[in-house]
Amino acid sequence: MASDLLHVTVLSIFVSVSATLLASAMAVPLGTVMGLHKFRGREVVKTFTYTLYGFPPVVAGLLIYLLLSQRGPLGSLNLLFTPAAMILAQMVLVFPIITGLTMSSVSQVAGEVKETAMTLGADRWQTAKTVLNEARIGVISAIMVGFGRAIAEVGAVLMVGGNIRWHTRVLTTAIVLETRRGNFEYALVLGAVLLTVALIVFFVLKRYQDKGVKI
């Protein structure tokens, strides 16, 4: 039971951290650009992004399943029922959230900071960095919310991971299984472990939020 618990916890962290990092790597730059620049159709893109906040995890799971199934277009990659598929599914769910929230917080500080930085002779790259640093509380909150969604999500990873012991079982799918089996106490223990993991991750992120990230 103890080695089960350890495996499930480590896999949970691995999958959700990877999904959040990979999604952030694309979503933060994209959100920054969208927050800094006014372009045609920006409001439409914004509304569309916000709509995807409510993307149902099970639907994300179903779409990824159909994509990765042997009968699907990417079936030959043999990704179904692997952690990679779970990471992909969580990325789909997390990406719009991080993009949208980054965009909001960047556009909030953009006007003033952008002008000041440009007056001081900053180039576009430096301006973007300065704005991003000013908006960091919002941006890191965006990543936190994204991670929170990823680690707590169950429908999508159950569908594309299959909740396979030693392979794709994570904390949330294990909670579903143990509840179904009637092991309520163990399910609660798993829930507590999940919250502890979230606590540690959020603690680390909050420190960056307070002190700032120098990149």
Binding site: L77, N78, L79, T82, K214, I215
Partner: peptide, 29 residues
């Protein structure tokens, strides 16, 4: 220079994660 180095480190870490994943599922498949 220091800032750039940090930025590159972050990129390298992300690239390594991606490469690791790719290699892993390739072997797995």
């Amino acid at each position: 220079k220091v800032q750039h180095r940090k930025f590159i480190t972050v990129l390298v870490v992300l690239a390594l994660i991606t490469a690791g994943l790719a290699a892993w599922w390739y072997i797995e498949s």
